[in-house]
């Protein structure tokens, strides 16, 4: 039982936190700008590389410089929005999807050009579980990741429910026409959406970098599971995205649990398919997602 908790459930939760933070951004852009942003994963990678440079420059802990990286990444993303997305505000969504596809290629090649493709690390060495908590095995990083995720979620919750801009974002996501009629400035809402999505993506990327390593494809590799998490939770529903991320993270890890006998239930070669299978099943049987997001 302890093994199940330590080796399957806790890693699943950590992975789920990373997916969840990334999925919030996807869900919000989907809800407010109405398109699936393929460049989201590479925005994440960009934020991680900026963090990496800041760490190398300052020698501080990655989590301490991450907020600055969030600000810088947000600035870049706002610039990209102005140049590449703004011309398509009234166009069909497919134009934005294709534009984000082009942007994905561009961001990644810029990263590869300037930082190179060699593997890098935010932190070296391995982390053994904390003695104090045994037999439950939590490493310091995992506690930091889970704790920081909870804090970020609370911050997102406060922004969305207590601030004017957050309320405007939710209103726009629920019903853009109505929101525009009530005098909400759509452009401000869009900028806030990019800022929130990009910052959370950077956080997710830095957590992933702490748990594994830093490389130029890391965000892209997360893109499809994050999409799956956003769908699962319900489009335009940030809390849903969190739930979706956790479910997918945990399901991926549990798929390798030897439920019957001693071999994994599902060949780990199919691990990547777990998220998709859940997503497809969800779309077919409950297309509005767990949290009753918008249904097209």
């Amino acid at each position: 039982m302890m093994a199940f908790l330590n080796f399957y459930l806790i890693p699943g939760v950590v992975l789920g936190c990373i997916y969840a933070l990334g999925a919030i951004g996807i869900s919000l852009t989907f809800g407010i700008l109405r398109f699936s942003n393929f460049a989201h994963g590479d925005t994440m990678t960009l934020g991680v590389y900026i963090t990496l440079s800041l760490v190398q420059f300052s020698g501080l802990h990655p989590l301490l410089v991450a907020p600055l990286a969030m600000v810088l990444t947000t600035g870049i993303v706002l610039g990209l929005d102005r140049t590449f997305y703004k011309p398509f505000r009234t166009s069909p969504a497919i134009m934005l999807v294709i534009a984000s596809f082009g942007l994905m290629l561009m961001i990644r090649s810029v990263i590869q050009f300037f930082w190179g493709v060699q593997l890098q690390a935010l932190q070296t060495g391995i982390q053994m579980p904390l003695e104090a908590l045994l037999p439950v095995r939590f490493s310091e990083n995992h506690l930091l990741i889970i704790g920081a995720t909870v804090l970020l979620m609370m911050a997102v919750h406060l922004v969305l429910t207590r601030t004017k801009i957050g309320k405007a974002m939710r209103a726009t996501s629920d019903n853009p026409e109505l929101a525009a009629l009530t005098g909400i400035d759509t452009e401000v809402v869009i900028r806030a959406t990019w800022a929130m999505g990009a910052s959370l993506a950077v956080a997710a990327g830095v957590f992933l970098g702490l748990d594994t390593h830093v490389e130029t494809m890391m965000g892209f590799k997360l893109l499809l599971p994050m999409f799956a998490a956003a769908i699962l939770g319900g489009i335009g529903k940030p809390y849903g995205a969190v739930a979706g991320g956790l479910v997918i993270g945990i399901a991926e890890e549990l798929s390798a649990y030897p439920w019957i006998g001693t071999t994994p239930l599902l060949s780990p070669g199919y691990k990547g398919g777990v998220a998709f299978a859940i997503m497809v099943a969800m779309l077919i049987w409950k297309p509005q997602g767990l949290f009753r997001g918008r249904q097209f």
Binding site: F30, F35, S36, A93, L224, F227, A228, I231, I235, G272, G273, A275, F276, A277, M279, V280, L283, I284, P287, Q295, F296
Partner: peptide, 17 residues
């Protein structure tokens, strides 16, 4: 019966599987 982006994401998932 899924529309637009939902069909897109379902089919991406199926293609990956």
């Amino acid at each position: 019966r899924l529309r637009a982006d939902y069909l897109a994401i379902a089919t991406i998932g199926i293609a990956e599987i």
